[in-house]
Simulated assay, not measured.
Amino acid sequence: MGKGYVHVYTGNGKGKTTAALGLALRAVCAGKKVFFGQFVKGMDYSELKAANFLPNFVIEQFGRGCFIHGEPSDEDAKAAKDGLRKLKNMLEEGNFDLVVMDEVNIALYFKLITSSEVIEAVNNRAEHVEVVLTGRYAPQEIIEIADLVTEMKEVKHYYQKGIIARKGIEF
């Protein structure tokens, strides 16, 4: 694959994880190996079943099964730190062609991990590994190390009409 690049998908609009999943699907269909690590998340999202259908696709959550409201707990921080440690090793080993750090920017926003830790992990990766960092509130230092940055901007959303999250579409 040659040199791997760093993508950031951020912003307040819907579609950051979905875009990363689309890229992961494309990579798997091209014979690449993908690891999809989800920070903060621990709930039963439909994409967790993808590994049952896609060869060379591994997904793991680094959250506690609930969304963080208010101040994060020590358990939230431990889950994020453990996840980052695992991803750092994967990035260095280079056994996966694409590594997605889903919602890592939210973990940074809640100060569960630091930007310097994430940047160190990304910078020390095997040269061929492509990396995607998702989540709203991407800090400037993450944007600066990226080769590609996409900001999802909400223009209109059916949540505003009271539509709740639907299985297979939002989760």
Results as ranks from 00 to 15, higher is better:
E92P: 03
K78V: 11
V104W: 04
K81L: 05
K111W: 02
Y137E: 10
L112M: 13
E117D: 15
E60I: 02
I106S: 01
N124V: 06
K86F: 13
G94H: 05
E117M: 13
N95F: 07
V129Y: 07
G94A: 06
F53K: 10
L84H: 09
N123H: 13
N123R: 13
D82L: 14
A77W: 01
S116P: 00
F53Y: 13
P72K: 08
F53Q: 03
K88F: 01
G65N: 13
F62Y: 15
V118C: 06
N124C: 13
H69G: 05
A126N: 10
M90H: 13
E71S: 14
E93Q: 12
P72T: 03
E120H: 14
K78N: 01
E144Y: 10
K49Y: 09
R125I: 07
E60D: 09
C66P: 03
N105A: 03
F62R: 08
Q140S: 11
E117K: 06
E71C: 08
L87H: 09
V132W: 02
L84E: 04
F96E: 08
T134W: 03
R136W: 05
K49A: 11
A126L: 03
A107S: 03
E93L: 12
E130Y: 04
L54S: 04
L133E: 03
E103M: 05
R64Y: 05
P55D: 14
R85I: 05
V118I: 11
A50T: 08
F62D: 02
N52K: 11
I106V: 15
E75Y: 09
L91D: 03
D76Q: 02
A138R: 07
D97E: 14
V132T: 03
V122E: 09
F96H: 15
V129W: 11
D76N: 07
Q61G: 12
I68E: 05
E144I: 06
S116L: 00
E71I: 13
P72Y: 06
E117T: 02
V118R: 06
H69F: 12
A121I: 00
Q140H: 10
F96Q: 03
A107V: 01
N124T: 15
E75C: 11
F57E: 01
A51P: 01
E127N: 09
G83A: 07
L112T: 04
N123Y: 07
N124H: 15
S73N: 09
D74Y: 12
M101G: 04
L133S: 03
V99T: 09
F62M: 08
K81Q: 14
I113N: 02
V132R: 02
L91E: 00
P139V: 06
D74K: 15
E75G: 08
C66I: 13
N89S: 10
H128S: 06
I68W: 00
